[in-house]
Design a protein around this nucleic acid. Structure first.
Lengths: 198, 198
DNA sequence: TTCCTCTTGTAGCGACTGCTACATTAAACT
DNA sequence: AGTTTAATGTAGCAGTCGCTACAAGAGGAA
């Protein structure tokens, strides 16, 4: 059984898998090629050089992330903003999302350093996440657009604090915020339980 | 004029300066040594190996950050939480803090990947920032401890969105939050003006 | 067939990586 | 002074980096 001809399209999934597991920082051509069952020679042949390979790969990964969000888009909306936050944070604790998250910070770092392709991919992923978040907002929310942006800010801050060992700080912050459940509201408040552990 | 004997203490400031400018990712011994006016040979001699060099360097940089916060600790507290956020975000737009911020995301990424020394430094920096933030909370704040943690989460989320080209998302989110200024409050609301530009 | 283009393998280049062996100088102790 | 120890320079090793020159196969077109 002969393998198909190589192309960017057949290469990218395997490259993405390797990068999701081993990161972008130490990603060099020969290990990448091995993961895709080829040689560095062919990677350069098909992508021209490493820089555009990484750019294309980031774009592809952003696409994966987008479709992951699509499939994760349950039909039932959250009832409160806090439930919305809790859902997303608990979803972010799934193993697949963990790998994404680890990679995500490398993408952010690359963005900050101005590496080619990073900012575009990051922006695309966040735009998609924002759109997804808007669909998850409570139906009776007074300001779904602004609220989604607010929740996004809070969520990203929480994720960052979590990765540097300050999950507890974020949790206590959320509990002290208006997201911890308005006592005058008739919705149940279980944010504490759904927040990430220390 | 003969240069002083080398030691970790005399080396670290110059190494830190180089890393703040060029990043941790591509930091290899020879450029680092050149920036410190020595040879890679001596870096290994004084630090043992690269890994502990980076660890020590991260610790040293965390120390720099801590003292930068100390000197930035004005005696006057903010009057409202939103003013507190606005101050910190505007402070983060100073050039020196910009360099820190770019480096910061590399530290977060290293934390997430489990690189040795990264998480410790990151945790230390965030702990320090949290303590500093508590001192900046409004005097009449009903919950300074919880509020500081909440603001910290929001601030970090805002910074992240800013570096990936979503400063506008964060700004709109903050404007839609309870931090945008309570109309029933007697404090002035100028958060919009102090938020980062698009 | 003959030719031509696309795709792939082999081999290697020059630069760089972290690190070390060896020798030398400089300072400090006895 | 003599001895010992710490600090530094020179040179280089084995490995990896991105990338390329060259040639060989493969498939279609004439």
């Amino acid at each position: 059984m002969q393998a198909n001809r190589l192309s960017r399209e057949t290469l990218l999934p395997q490259l993405a898998a390797h990068v999701l597991q081993h990161g972008l920082g130490g990603a060099s051509l020969r290990p990448l090629a091995k993961a895709a069952g080829t040689s560095d020679r062919m990677l350069i042949y098909h992508f021209g050089n490493k820089e555009t390979l990484i750019s294309d790969l980031l774009g592809y990964i952003a696409g994966i992330y987008a479709s992951a969000l699509e499939t994760a888009m349950g039909s039932d909306r959250a009832k409160t903003r806090q439930e919305c936050v809790a859902r997303i944070l608990s979803q972010g604790r799934q193993p697949m999302m963990q790998a994404f998250l680890v990679l995500w910070w490398e993408i952010v770092a690359g963005s900050a350093r101005g590496l080619s392709g990073y900012k575009e991919a990051a922006e695309q992923m966040m735009t998609k996440q924002l759109a997804w978040l808007e669909t998850q907002m409570p139906e009776d929310d007074p300001d779904p657009a602004g609220g989604a942006r607010y929740l996004m800010t809070v969520i990203e801050g929480t994720l960052m604090l979590g990765t540097v060992g300050h999950a507890r700080t974020a949790r206590e912050g959320l509990l002290a915020s208006d997201l911890s459940g308005d006592p005058t509201s008739n919705h149940s408040s279980n944010l504490a339980g759904d927040l990430p552990p220390t």
